[in-house]
Amino acid sequence: MTTIAVRSPTENLKSKFTHYWSLTKPLQSGLLLATGLAGYMSARCPVLNIGTILGLTGSLFLAIAGSTVLNMWWDRDIDARMGRTKKRATSKGLVNENEVLRVGLILSVLGVGWAVAMDTLYGLIVFAGLFFDVVIYSMWLKRRTAWSIVWGGVSGAMPILAGRALGLGAMDWIGAMLALGILFWIPTHTLTFSMKFVKDYADACVPTFPSTYGLAVTRVTIAVSSMLAALAMIVAGYGIGMAWGFLRLLGVLSAGLLILAIAMTFRPSERVNFGLFKYASIYMLAAMILVVLEVM
């Protein structure tokens, strides 16, 4: 006699939540959310306004999570062909694809709607980020050109720009510089990643810098991009009015990023590649913490 395992509704719900939670890429979304909060606080507005902070956190998280879920839905076919992503719930068919689309749309509409209700300019920038990420990057360019990462970078830079615009009520050069810092940081992150998984992307026929221009050009691109990211963050820090000691610390962390990027250009290895990939994330998180601490 065979026994069929029957799940209770609670277990079903829990399992579904776990699948959808993983589809929002919590770590990546969390880091982008952190940039949005740092951008808001960099405006030196009254940051202890609980309503605004909750609204910013909620709307940004919903919009970022929504766009990530929509990307997962769109890329489910190529994700299933890549070793790194074939275990995703969308690739393995653990969730209904129409349901994923609906969830992604609902999260996105809720996030953007909430953002627009809070402030029109803020909402517009949040919408731009979602549009660049889902439509321009994923749907239009990702399978066509290695340069799609630029648009992925632009969308990644939107949360910090949106946060600052919300705090300031306008856009300024410091917001643009913070956004440039993220824009130039993203290739450091994604190109080291595409070098590590170059075969995966080739299997899925997704053009990347390593497969299109070769490893040497990709390494130089990463080094230049890291240098520009560090420069933009330091200039932004100066513009915010960061204390000299905090700027010193930002300089130290930036130097670490540059040294790793240079090491990867001239002494490339799997270890240095992995180190740069991880360090780049720590660098950006630390830079955001410094911006927040500065205004606390």
Partner: peptide, 22 residues
């Protein structure tokens, strides 16, 4: 001294992070 101490503690900071990573 500020430059010297920044280099000393900066190297300690970055080396500590890289030790965690690698």
């Amino acid at each position: 001294p500020v430059i010297a101490y920044t280099i000393a503690f900066g190297v300690l900071l970055v080396a500590g992070l890289l030790l965690i990573i690698w």
